[in-house]
Nucleic acid binder design. Sequence first.
DNA 1: CGCCGCTTGTTCACGTGGTCACAAACCCTT
DNA 2: AAGGGTTTGTGACCACGTGAACAAGCGGCG
Lengths: 220, 220
Amino acid sequence: MPEATVARLPLYLRSLLEAQHANAATISSERLAELAGVNAAKVRKDLSYLGSYGTRGVGYDVEYLLFQMSRELGLTQDWPVAIVGLGNLGQALANYMGFGDRGFPIVALCDADPRVVGTEVHGVVVRHVEDLPVIAAAHGISIGIIATPASAAQDVADRLVAAGVSSILNFAPTVLSVPEEVSIRKVDLAVELQILSFYQQRRSGGPKLPPLDIPVGVED
Amino acid sequence: MPEATVARLPLYLRSLLEAQHANAATISSERLAELAGVNAAKVRKDLSYLGSYGTRGVGYDVEYLLFQMSRELGLTQDWPVAIVGLGNLGQALANYMGFGDRGFPIVALCDADPRVVGTEVHGVVVRHVEDLPVIAAAHGISIGIIATPASAAQDVADRLVAAGVSSILNFAPTVLSVPEEVSIRKVDLAVELQILSFYQQRRSGGPKLPPLDIPVGVED
DNA sequence: CGCCGCTTGTTCACGTGGTCACAAACCCTT
DNA sequence: AAGGGTTTGTGACCACGTGAACAAGCGGCG
Ligand SMILES: NC(=O)c1ccc[n+]([C@@H]2O[C@H](COP(=O)([O-])OP(=O)(O)OC[C@H]3O[C@@H](n4cnc5c(N)ncnc54)[C@H](O)[C@@H]3O)[C@@H](O)[C@H]2O)c1
Ligand SMILES: NC(=O)c1ccc[n+]([C@@H]2O[C@H](COP(=O)([O-])OP(=O)(O)OC[C@H]3O[C@@H](n4cnc5c(N)ncnc54)[C@H](O)[C@@H]3O)[C@@H](O)[C@H]2O)c1
């Protein structure tokens, strides 16, 4: 299945939940596309990777498609999550209710700062990052979230991998190297803002300054 | 310039800053590729969109490339940012130092909850979201961050657009519709976790259950 | 029972992005 | 001054993802 399709499945899932909430029994690819903000043809092609679960002339059965998609995304089981680094961001994540509700219970919190270790966040006691192997094994943790400063991120990633965690979500602005069999995804807010800045300046600044593509043939 | 290239420029920028920090005068595409975690040929092609700023046999002048790239990304000026919604996430973002340092000062905070309005976060007083037009105009805000519940996100987006904001970063798990001339980027943590879950189950669960692509000829 | 409108699933053409490979260009050494 | 080693910039090719179009299939209606 194409990576691009996988990345859209969660959007469809969310849209299906909305449709279900609105008591829709079936949904057309066009409506689903509208809810998910994509092209209808793309929706049909994506869904066809899951199997032929639609009915021509009718659409897709919302309940059934929800079940199939949840199964495909691995959401029929819970995936316990550990958060490492409980600063501003880590605490916000730990306090967020939306994860546990959706099958990603936050069962472990780790930090290296002795002032943070032992405190309680959202009902979970913060443990020392050294204890990761024991904690991970005890809870069957397979997903880890890194919310430490960039300087500590690679070390934390290594510890997570050593503890048997094979999926990592990284908020630190740095490139991590992990074994091939470990999935890694990154969320970098500074990058997002800079991308916005690029297009913003394209629009407003426009070509005020000359392109300045005159080569730097200066030395002579 | 290809969208994919634009999305990588910030990575190169960060890598160049690292190189600069390590007192490197020049840097090769290969080294830069290593730091940014991409292919070297891709680096060269990406950089060639900025102009021919390299020297064959030598590499790229770190300082000069930093300047050119900052200029291209619009980072030679500050872009004041407003955050709307100061719950868990919004407060974490407001307290984060990394944005102001990199040219994205957080100059305004808005919320709708009267218990939050008037409080101070990281030295900035939270204003009511109704006042957005005045606040935005006063500070010249062009970038807005939405950190409200999903149910309020579209309303907030409309308010931001009405206030003249033309770049939006959305943390709420919902699809927003905005005018064509407004850039929008979204960060959805639940989606990221679900993508990880998909590959996790592919690895661990593997094809334990049969593909189950037998059509649902059930009703009879 | 057959026709008609609707929606899916799939095919095809296209555009974008990624990778490879190599000539051109540069520095340094001799 | 010339040659060797190095690295850029780019052209060609390939893979992937996207969007449009359409036949096949389904339900409902007359
Ligand atoms: N806070 C935000 O809004 C925000 C925004 C964008 C990016 N980020 C990134 O997210 C990361 C965390 O940001 P933050 O504001 O929460 O930082 P923070 O400094 O508030 O918190 C970092 C936490 O990590 C802990 N830590 C440090 N080294 C550790 C180690 N080796 N093992 C375990 N824990 C360790 C610290 O004790 C601290 O509790 C940073 O990389 C930052 O760049 C944060
Ligand atoms: N906190 C997290 O770690 C986290 C993780 C993933 C996604 N999110 C998403 O980020 C968003 C914010 O999460 P949170 O945990 O901070 O939520 P929260 O409930 O803690 O805070 C939401 C804030 O938005 C304010 N608000 C509500 N309606 C508003 C309106 N119309 N105008 C202005 N402000 C309004 C509320 O008063 C509140 O202060 C949510 O959409 C959530 O799904 C948060």
